[in-house]
Design a binder for these strands. Structure first.
Lengths: 223, 223
DNA sequence: GCTTGGACTGATCGATCGGTCAGTGATTGA
DNA sequence: TCAATCACTGACCGATCGATCAGTCCAAGC
């Protein structure tokens, strides 16, 4: 049960091959799911023998755990942007939203790993861990918003939780459907992530009661 | 459109046991993923023999296909609400958003099946099918919004695509994190789906330029 | 020199996988 | 009455799964 790695932080791969295994496992787990990937698949992609995978990782489950650990490491860093960001609250929200979308686009495997984790009803141990990460992140975001709401920077009419979920959800929808979106319009008019982030902020911030003008000097409606 | 009803009962369960197999497969596939479920698991939950599964469905893949077919059938019906709905555009958007959230909450297995399908990079055949359903749905939603936008019912400042993705994404976020949300506040103050839908519409619609007053008689005075 | 230990591999294990098959019991139509 | 069809089952198959193990290779320490 509590067989999990007692040594907390040092999840660092000890060898070049071990790192290749970790990276191969991450992309494969993200694309095919835990059960959809065999140790052979991972070993083949990492250009090592199957037995070598078990040399570096005690079991398939522990390898998956290591992949999750490595993937969720840099998730926390993103929160500082809204926490310690500069500028008005509207700017910080806009920056956070744009940064979050870029983060998803830059690491799609991480997003998928995260999502699969939330959908899986088996590994309750790691699922709780993932839930804790999310809860902590949400709590952190809400603290900031509720604080500026008490300072009258943010309209009282806005529910901070709804605002957070709307940003994260909208970004995820764009991320998930990004390849389909271009087929909805003329082939020449693409919807870039920057376009979407701007449009999303324009949709949400007018009702926040915060000044949202400062950072749009060259913006014009004429397309 | 006519694709689904061309052959009336193409995959219709011909027996009570067959229906149990289909339902068991749906919940298991949704929770554990395609590779995470064995025919034995399905047979056990459906209270039939393993061979009987192959008697009704030619293979595991065809069973999965039948599950998907059965699950995506009622998805289309939801679009009519915004298409043929009554009332102002703001009311129709609000109704659609609330209905979409209720639909997700009522059929979480369907949502998970849908999502797993989009994350899976193997079954390209069914993946394209799923993508077509989504594309058709999005296209339909956008048509309505762009129409009312030309009629000046909807503000020109709003990007219809962003609005649609924001609604769907926000709902999905609430759906996905619904069990975590109550832990963020006092145990007594729960965030009901109705609360969230109201709050989401309040966040989004003020900037749409459409009249959004009709359905908020007890709303507070402007702060 | 010799020994130790870690990285790594090929061969192999039992368990479980998806799938097959011969057959049973009940129902039906001629 | 009997043959045919149906839903359904237990036993079994080859393939593949995660995991083990004995052993090779090589660099570091004495």
């Amino acid at each position: 049960m509590q067989q999990s790695t007692s040594t907390e932080a040092p999840a660092g791969p000890r060898t070049e091959a071990a790192l290749r295994i970790l990276e191969a496992a991450k992309s494969l787990f993200a694309d095919m799911g835990y059960e959809g990937v065999s140790i052979r698949d991972i070993a083949d992609r990492a250009k090592v023998s199957k037995a070598n995978v078990f040399h570096h990782f005690t079991s398939k489950a522990s390898l998956y755990e290591a992949v999750l650990e490595h993937a969720t490491a840099d998730w926390d860093a993103q929160l500082d942007l809204l926490k310690n960001g500069s500028g008005s609250i509207a700017e910080r929200i806009a920056d956070f939203a744009a940064e979050d979308l870029q983060h998803q686009l830059a690491d799609p495997h991480g997003v998928y790993l995260f999502l699969r984790q939330l959908m899986d009803n088996r590994h309750t141990a790691q699922r709780r861990k993932t839930e804790e990460v999310i809860t902590r992140g949400l709590r952190s975001l809400l603290d900031v918003l509720e604080e500026v709401q008490q300072n009258r920077e943010l309209s009282q009419r806005i529910d901070p939780l709804t605002l957070v979920l709307a940003i994260l959800g909208s970004n995820f929808m764009y991320f998930q459907l990004r390849h389909l979106l271009n087929g909805l319009f003329d082939p020449e008019s693409r919807v870039t992530p920057e376009d979407f982030s701007r449009s999303l902020i324009r949709l949400i911030t007018p009702s926040t009661g915060a000044a949202s003008d400062s950072s749009s000097p060259s913006d014009h409606p004429a397309s």
